[in-house]
């Protein structure tokens, strides 16, 4: 270590950090970690020392240390994009998806709109998307299982109900009598004496066929009743299928709407920016275009300079809402 007579701990620590940085660049991670550790010992309140050391540990896949250093750094300053990002990665390693995505989300938020070399939105997005997708797969399959179970159960109940009614209809026709039993109201099932099968059947029958011809034979009435019961059963099953189909729709992969996608990358927006022409693009992609292709709006060809774009917050919100309901769209 260089001898540093006469300098304050602060200056010494900065010097050590510089040494660490140059070791890091030469891929001497052990030496870099040592330098940062000394800097931290001298000045533990400088977040950059912690995040730089975390970066070294990250390169060595020492995730436990990455986590500790990032937590320390975030204690000092909670707005450090890199610390949230690396902490997210460390938590992913431990399969703490929920906590990990919280930090990656935070990193993404902080990273949006940044410029130059610190722009790491795409990198963060990729990791976040992977984690969110894993989370979604687990949640979606859980929901699907629950819904399937409930659906099977309800189908069983409907079927049982249908079979009971059929059975009653047949029993009724076997002991067919034409006269209508007195003493019950046919518009309400609850007051029917359930011990009286014949009464129930008549009640059902009258409920379903209030205008039935009195001259019809018991055989005809039974047939009509059975077909009525069958139709009703099928309709209920169909409605149930439709309801469950709708309930399961968000968990089935579909299309991301065009208005949530950049026309150049054709991918869902991460950091949307709007041009004076009113067109929205992915920031990094548009900047690359302005740098490599030309200073014009890719769609309208109007002259465009990088400082003329502004974040499109409404689209950013729309994307977040869409993703929160359609986790499959995280698949990249």
């Amino acid at each position: 270590m260089a001898r540093m007579f006469g300098s304050s701990p602060k200056e010494q620590a900065e010097l050590l950090k510089d040494q660490g940085n140059s070791y890091f660049k030469k891929d001497k991670l052990g030496a870099a970690i040592e330098a940062y550790t000394q800097a931290i010992t001298l000045c533990p309140k400088v977040p950059a020392y912690w995040t730089n050391r975390a970066l070294c540990h990250k390169k060595r896949n020492e995730w436990h240390q990455v986590e500790n250093d990032c937590l320390k750094a975030l204690d000092l300053d909670n707005s450090l994009t890199k610390a949230h990002y690396m902490l997210g990665l460390a938590l992913l390693e431990r399969r703490q998806y929920h906590e990990a995505t919280k930090h990656l989300e935070k990193a993404l938020d902080l990273g949006r709109g940044a410029t130059g070399s610190s722009y790491m939105v795409e990198e963060i997005w990729q990791e976040l998307a992977k984690a969110r997708y894993v989370e979604w797969v687990a949640e979606a399959s859980n929901r699907q299982r629950q819904q399937r179970e409930l659906k099977d159960y309800l189908f069983g109940l409907l079927k049982q109900d249908y079979e009971n009614k059929l059975k009653q209809a047949y029993e009724k026709s076997g002991a067919a009598t034409e006269h209508v039993q007195p003493g019950y109201r046919d518009d309400s099932n609850d007051i029917i004496d359930l011990t009286n099968d014949e009464g129930v059947m008549s009640a059902l029958q009258n409920a379903y066929f209030p205008a039935m011809e009195l001259q019809s034979t018991p055989e005809e009435r039974r047939k009509a009743e059975v077909s009525q019961l069958t139709e009703e059963f099928q309709k209920r099953v169909q409605t149930m299928e439709e309801v469950f189909d709708k309930a399961g729709a968000p968990d089935r992969p579909g299309e991301v709407p065009d208005y949530l996608c950049c026309q150049i990358s054709m991918d869902i927006f991460r950091d949307p920016v709007i041009t004076p022409s009113g067109v929205t693009y992915e920031r990094a992609v548009l900047m690359e275009h302005l740098q490599k292709v030309g200073k014009f709006d890719p769609l309208t060809r109007a002259t465009l300079h990088p400082d003329q774009v502004a974040p499109n917050l409404a689209i950013k919100e729309a994307v977040q809402t869409f993703l929160s309901h359609n986790g499959w769209a995280y698949k990249t």
Binding site: Q263, I264, V285, H289, V293, P298, L299, R301
Partner: peptide, 11 residues
């Protein structure tokens, strides 16, 4: 055809 060369746009 100009769009294939000078007038290309990534859109």
């Amino acid at each position: 055809l100009d769009i294939l060369y000078d007038s290309w746009s990534p859109a």
